[in-house]
């Protein structure tokens, strides 16, 4: 049986991992390669590395970091942050990344999704969508959650799938950093409606949050950051807890 995936996310700035709470406060959480290896040993199913560096120079260093991660890591990892073109993706894949995630660039230029899927295959293309409730509509935001767009979550997610994305990573900005649980309602709707895998992000605070997510929705994977980085939830304990409660995990 295909198992549910647990995915620690590492935000990388200037070569170090950091974690934002509601995208504003940053705390240092260690060396990206070492932290990744630790998670792999502890049973992480995949990792995501997001480059949140501001400068072009730091972005180039990120490609070298991706190569080091690929050299040492024996599980799959996705990279993202600031990807804007086919050639950005090409260099990250050549460095050894397994998948790439695009966000703002996909909203600004949706054809990029088609181009990436055609050139590299859908399975390499993860589209990240950040959204929050505005009135009663789940509304898409870009640029690290700072810019509101005209797009609505569900129609955008469908378009992303139709254009050839292989997976959707949905972050509820209303839940991110709150540790109050995942955004069950929109995740349930997304995961039933789409035919590609959905990764849930934003809101994990305790292991019961992961259990509720997998019991109440059809999502394929749960992503979290701070709860892993600061040891609030240990991966082996989480996996055992989920298995005992009837969730298929590795």
């Amino acid at each position: 049986m295909l198992t549910k995936r647990i995915i620690p996310c590492l935000d990388v700035k200037d070569g170090r991992t950091v974690k934002g709470t509601n995208f504003t406060q940053l705390r240092d959480a260690g060396d990206p390669v070492e932290l990744g290896r630790l998670y792999a040993q502890q049973g992480a199913d995949e990792l995501v590395y997001l480059d949140i560096s501001a400068t072009q120079e730091a972005r180039q260093n990120f490609t070298s970091l991706v190569r080091e991660v690929a050299r040492h890591l024996d599980i799959p990892f996705t990279v993202g942050g600031g990807i804007g073109s086919v050639s950005d993706v090409e260099s990250l894949l050549e460095a050894g990344a397994d998948k790439v995630t695009i966000n703002s660039a996909a909203v600004a230029n949706p054809d990029l999704i088609d181009e990436l899927a055609k050139q590299f295959g859908s399975q390499l293309v993860v589209v990240a969508v950040d959204a929050r409730l505005v009135g009663n509509q789940w509304t898409v935001f870009t640029h690290g959650g700072t810019r509101q767009t005209e797009r609505k979550l569900f129609s955008w997610a469908k378009e992303v799938q139709d254009r050839g994305a292989g997976e959707i990573l949905f972050t509820s900005m209303d839940h991110d950093g709150t540790k109050s649980g995942y955004a069950i309602d929109p995740l349930n709707k997304l995961s039933q409606w789409l035919s590609i895998p959905v990764v849930a992000s934003g809101g994990a605070g305790k292991r019961e949050d992961f259990l509720s997510l997998f019991r109440l929705t059809q999502v394929d994977a749960a992503l979290a950051a701070g709860v892993f980085h600061f040891g609030e939830i240990a991966l082996p304990t989480l996996k055992t807890f989920l298995a005992k409660n009837g969730i298929a995990v590795r």
Partner: peptide, 10 residues
């Protein structure tokens, strides 16, 4: 089922 088949299987 979701396609692609993506993840860990036995």
């Amino acid at each position: 089922i979701k396609v692609p088949h993506m993840g860990w299987n036995q």
